[in-house]
């Protein structure tokens, strides 16, 4: 039984390497883009609240609603629902390119919420102290908000990345490849339980690595 497993592992080795690569590409690209958008949105959500440096109830409420709407759709539905948008942005709806757009639309609002709550942890008193020192709004964002929140921001990114790994497995359906695609095609459609088990183990490995890395970085930053 176990020998059987190893034989199959060797047989599908190239497939695993290939699918890990595809998952990696999808996750990294989507993560970088989502993190940039999510951080921007997160900052806007914090600084436009009542009483904050760029207080603006209209911007705050509109952003709030948009993010809530996007956040209420499961990935698989969102992916189909925004097909026209995806086509408009990257010209295709299949392959890695076609997967990255829905992955970003799915992950960025989630990250925005996670990073928003990280930024909200920053003590208002410190912001006030900087205002009393004549700091500009930009200096307050870069030197207080982003700096003080670093450990929580990293933890937020970690959670977002793990959810991204999960979503990327579903993106296999649109032919973007990756571990999810292999699991469906070989594990489910061709009934190769060994491939299924390997894919599950590899996904677990991914999540473990991301989580440990995130926790370690946050811990290092928090030590101070």
């Amino acid at each position: 039984m176990l020998g059987n497993f190893f034989d199959s592992f060797a047989e599908f080795w190239d497939l695993y390497v290939q699918s890990m690569r595809e998952t990696g590409i999808m996750v990294v690209y989507s993560l970088v883009i989502s993190a940039a958008i999510g951080l921007l949105l997160g900052i806007v959500l914090v600084v436009t609240r009542p009483g904050h440096i760029y207080a603006n109830p209209i911007v705050y409420q509109v952003m709030n609603i948009i993010i809530n709407v996007l956040r209420s759709l499961p990935f698989i539905i969102l992916m189909v629902a925004i097909i026209p948008f995806t086509k408009w942005v990257v010209g295709t709806t299949i392959g890695v390119k076609g997967a990255i757009v829905p992955l970003v639309v799915y992950t960025a609002p989630y990250l925005a919420r996670l990073l928003e709550s990280a930024l909200l942890e920053v003590d208002r008193g410190v912001i006030e102290a900087f205002q009393s020192m004549g700091a500009t709004h930009r200096q307050i964002i870069t030197r207080v908000l982003l700096r003080e929140a670093r450990p929580s921001l990293v933890l937020g990114l970690t959670i977002g990345t793990i959810s991204l790994v999960g979503a990327s497995a579903m993106a296999g359906v649109v032919g973007a490849g990756g571990l999810g695609d292999v699991a469906i095609r070989y594990g489910y459609q061709r009934w190769e339980p060994n491939v299924m088990i390997t894919c599950v183990l590899l996904l677990i490995l991914w999540v473990q690595i991301v989580q440990s890395l995130g926790t370690a970085i946050a811990k290092r930053l928090r030590k101070r």
């Binding site: 008193g125 006030e128 102290a129 030197r143 003080e148 101070r224």
Partner: peptide, 10 residues
Amino acid sequence: FQTFNLLSSN
């Protein structure tokens, strides 16, 4: 301030 309000990361 009463709560000092220092940057904890500095």
